[in-house]
Simulated assay, not measured.
Amino acid sequence: MTPTTSNSQKLLSPEEIAVRAGEQLTFVHMPDAGVFAARALRLRELAAGHAMRDFLLFVAELADAQHRALKAGVRVPVPSAEQVHAAARDGVPLLPAETWVREPLWRDSLRALLRDLAGHLPEGPARAAAGHLADATDEHLDTQAGRLLTGVMLGLDLAAAPLIAAGLQLHWVRLVQQTAVAHTGGAVAPFGRIDDPTVCPCCGSRPVASLERLGAEGARYLACGLCAMQWHYVRIKCTHCQSTKGISLQNLVAADASAPEAQPAVQAECCSECGHYLKLMHPARDNGLEPVADDLATLTLDLLVSEDGQQRHGVNLLLLFGEPDEAPPPGGGH
């Protein structure tokens, strides 16, 4: 008798295949001890001959100061096992940027970072701004930090925003690293999949960019601009509305398909369904790519895509778009 085969097996869609493949990949990649040093190095490389040279070099100095502070090994309070279990049960980020209580320690670290930064800057406006902000009141720093983390532009001091953002990045990288160490081997992993795959599973922030990680078979990861966590996200899928329709890539210059080495390392992945875009970075085309640094250095791509009516989905706390609706208090809240 000839064996028969069943035709009842469900055929998987391309998206379902991608999801199953993603289940075999490491879901999250933690920021390592050299995260800020790598950013500073990349910024200096990108600054050569760049129209934003001075700003990129300033942010490189800022990243160096963050690296020195991270190396100091300052301890921060981490969530309890009960909090880890509750976040996993509810499918929410463990360290949500908008609601996590920031201990006074974050302000102390910010002030130390600013004074260290000022000592490495030449005499000028940037050095004066760092020193001025280091002397600001606790209330002013907390208010500005809250606006940054919640996306409130009303009363936000755009000039001081990168400096405050640097302190927040330092604080959250410490939180992520020390939480991971504290709960290694626990019953529940501190950072895993959450209900909303478009935001960071650690802090709930929107990504600064996405990238195809080397050694992960071209898998796409979203990179957090606050805590530097990277988490897996299906390719060719909008990071804003999660649609798989109407996805296209835009480049600064037309790439020659016959010359792979000429393909752009940074593109804008655009969604016609919701009108949002996020940059997609290809380390295989430029091994030095760093999400925050390369996002800053490709501002021209943002301008190009915005001319087509696309809205930026990514958030880079070191360079915010828009204008504050109201000026901050004179004197930085002294």
Rank of each mutant, 00 (worst) to 15 (best):
177 Q>N: 00
175 L>H: 12
158 L>Q: 14
179 T>F: 10
159 A>N: 09
174 R>N: 12
181 V>D: 15
162 P>I: 11
156 L>H: 13
164 I>Y: 08
183 H>R: 08
157 D>A: 10
171 H>A: 12
173 V>M: 11
184 T>W: 07
169 Q>F: 07
179 T>S: 10
163 L>D: 01
159 A>F: 05
178 Q>L: 02
157 D>T: 07
178 Q>T: 03
182 A>Q: 10
154 L>I: 07
154 L>G: 09
181 V>K: 12
178 Q>W: 06
170 L>M: 03
165 A>H: 00
156 L>E: 10
167 G>W: 07
169 Q>K: 07
153 M>V: 07
174 R>E: 15
178 Q>I: 01
184 T>E: 15
153 M>H: 15
168 L>Y: 07
166 A>E: 02
183 H>I: 01
180 A>F: 00
170 L>V: 06
175 L>P: 12
166 A>M: 07
181 V>M: 10
167 G>T: 05
166 A>K: 04
185 G>P: 00
153 M>E: 14
180 A>K: 00
156 L>G: 13
170 L>Y: 06
182 A>R: 11
161 A>T: 05
174 R>D: 11
171 H>K: 01
164 I>G: 06
179 T>E: 13
184 T>N: 13
158 L>I: 09
168 L>G: 09
163 L>Q: 04
165 A>V: 01
157 D>Q: 11
179 T>D: 14
167 G>I: 05
155 G>K: 04
155 G>M: 06
165 A>E: 02
178 Q>Y: 03
156 L>A: 11
154 L>V: 12
156 L>D: 14
159 A>C: 03
160 A>S: 12
166 A>H: 01
175 L>M: 14
169 Q>T: 13
156 L>W: 13
162 P>D: 03
164 I>P: 03
183 H>Q: 07
174 R>K: 11
170 L>R: 12
163 L>I: 02
173 V>R: 02
176 V>L: 15
176 V>Y: 05
178 Q>H: 06
170 L>T: 10
175 L>F: 05
184 T>Q: 14
176 V>Q: 01
169 Q>P: 04
183 H>C: 01
158 L>V: 06
166 A>L: 04
161 A>F: 06
174 R>P: 09
170 L>N: 08
161 A>L: 04
170 L>D: 09
156 L>N: 11
169 Q>E: 15
162 P>Y: 06
174 R>F: 09
172 W>G: 03
170 L>Q: 04
155 G>A: 09
181 V>E: 15
169 Q>V: 02
165 A>R: 00
163 L>H: 10
171 H>S: 13
166 A>R: 02
176 V>N: 03
175 L>V: 06
163 L>K: 07
173 V>E: 10
163 L>F: 05
172 W>D: 08
171 H>M: 02
173 V>G: 11
177 Q>L: 00
181 V>R: 13
184 T>M: 09
156 L>C: 10
181 V>W: 04
157 D>H: 08
182 A>M: 02
181 V>Q: 15
177 Q>M: 03
182 A>N: 01
171 H>T: 08
169 Q>R: 13
154 L>Y: 05
173 V>I: 08
178 Q>K: 00
154 L>C: 03
162 P>E: 05
181 V>H: 02
183 H>K: 03
160 A>E: 15
164 I>F: 07
176 V>T: 12
159 A>Y: 05
168 L>V: 11
173 V>T: 13
154 L>P: 00
179 T>W: 12
177 Q>G: 01
157 D>W: 08
154 L>K: 14
171 H>P: 07
172 W>H: 15
